[in-house]
Amino acid sequence: MSDAPGSALPWTLAADGVVVTVRATPRGGRDAIDGIVALGDGRSALKARVSVAAEDGKANAALAKLLAKAAGIAPSRVELLSGATGRTKSFRLSGDPQDIAARLAGFEDSDAHG
């Protein structure tokens, strides 16, 4: 795992946790993280899908719960920072940044083509 600038990881370490970029697909049939995807602007994001529709914040809540499970933290420690109404979102995962990053690193090897 590389923390070097431009390493194409969709998360950055902060003093109190990790900030992660997510490309969301609501009504994706199931709740899952499908790996890492490249965005049009050159950034990368975790590719995530949730089964609920994007209405009344339900998809954002489902994404927060999914991220919490993946990071091994309580859902209350996940905060939506930006992108509430868009598909590309930014979340803060509060906790030990090294531990959270290590858990998220498991998605680096996932097939994210498509």
Rank of each mutant, 00 (worst) to 15 (best):
D3Q: 11
L13A: 06
E79M: 08
R23F: 10
S82W: 03
D3M: 13
A71N: 02
G114I: 10
V20A: 12
D56F: 06
K89M: 07
G114H: 09
A38Q: 15
G35K: 08
D56Q: 13
K58M: 14
R43I: 08
I36L: 12
T88K: 13
D109G: 13
A32I: 10
P5N: 09
S94Y: 08
K47V: 00
G35V: 08
A61T: 13
R77E: 06
S7H: 06
T88M: 15
T85N: 14
N60W: 07
F91A: 03
T21R: 12
P5H: 11
A45F: 14
D31S: 10
D99H: 06
A8Q: 13
A68N: 07
R77T: 10
P75L: 08
P5Q: 11
A64W: 01
K65G: 13
D99N: 04
S82I: 00
V22G: 06
A101Y: 02
G40T: 09
R49F: 08
A53Y: 15
I36Y: 06
D99Q: 06
T25P: 00
G95P: 00
G86T: 12
T12M: 10
R87H: 15
I73V: 15
R87N: 15
V50H: 04
G17Y: 01
L9K: 14
L9V: 14
G114V: 14
L63P: 05
A45H: 11
I100G: 01
A101C: 03
D16R: 08
R92I: 01
V78K: 02
R49K: 12
K47F: 03
G28K: 04
L13E: 05
A4E: 07
G83N: 05
